Computed example of a mutant assay.
Amino acid sequence: MAGMGPAPKPAGRKARRNADAIPQTVLRWERAEAPELPDFRIEQGGELVEFVWPERTREWWQTWIDSPQAEHFGSSDWQFLLDTALIHARLWRGDNSAGAELRLRVAAFGATPADRARLRMVFAEADGADGGSGRSGGPSARERYGQLRMMPGGKSEPGKDG
């Protein structure tokens, strides 16, 4: 109904315009295949020896390759994750100081349910779990409270006591 409420502010006087202060950069997407854990040498006791990946790190790497997130990884993501594999290997070789950095790095890829929620990731099966109804399966608010009615002579609205 026209005339209800104050007129909207002019656009130039609005405090919030919901526009990004910094424009977005749109990149061309190129999916990249996961690299294998590389063979390399490290210095140990003054000589170069072949680095052996801990079995647990090999399993961890395969978990990332098989993860749903992997289909969205580009080459720079895999390179960052490869460096993260070295931190994972340090942890599994007993260097507990690597734990904090490992946690920060895998959080960026959605390693835990909390990480995925923060990154606004959802699994495709969850999208269709409600059969397209947009409901959890329980009764709606209308079904739960639709029969409720205001009682005659009930309390008046605040500020309208008279």
Rank of each mutant, 00 (worst) to 15 (best):
S76Y: 06
S76A: 12
D77C: 14
D77V: 00
D77N: 15
W78P: 07
W78C: 10
Q79A: 11
F80G: 08
F80W: 11
F80C: 04
F80Q: 09
F80T: 09
F80I: 00
L81G: 07
L81E: 04
L81T: 03
L81H: 06
L81D: 09
L82N: 07
L82Y: 03
D83M: 07
D83S: 13
D83I: 00
D83T: 04
D83A: 12
D83W: 05
A85Q: 05
A85L: 02
L86N: 06
L86W: 02
I87G: 04
I87R: 04
H88S: 09
H88A: 13
A89C: 08
A89T: 12
A89K: 02
R90I: 00
R90K: 13
R90S: 13
R90E: 13
L91F: 05
L91C: 03
L91I: 05
L91M: 04
L91K: 02
W92K: 00
R93Y: 02
G94V: 07
G94I: 03
D95R: 01
D95M: 00
N96G: 10
N96P: 00
N96H: 07
N96T: 13
A98H: 08
A98T: 07
A98R: 05
A98Y: 08
A98N: 05
A98C: 09
A100T: 12
A100P: 01
E101I: 10
E101Q: 13
E101P: 00
E101W: 10
E101Y: 09
L102Y: 08
L102G: 04
L102I: 07
R103D: 14
R103T: 14
R103G: 08
R103N: 14
R103C: 03
L104R: 15
L104W: 12
L104D: 15
L104A: 11
R105N: 12
R105V: 01
R105M: 08
R105G: 00
R105A: 09
V106Y: 11
V106P: 09
V106F: 07
A107L: 04
A107I: 01
A107Q: 13
A107W: 08
A107V: 03
A108E: 15
A108Q: 15
F109T: 08
F109E: 03
G110Y: 05
G110T: 10
G110K: 09
A111N: 13
A111R: 15
T112L: 10
T112H: 12
T112P: 10
P113C: 04
P113V: 10
P113A: 11
P113Y: 06
A114M: 11
A114G: 08
D115Y: 10
D115V: 02
R116S: 09
R116A: 11
A117D: 15
A117M: 11
A117Q: 15
A117V: 05
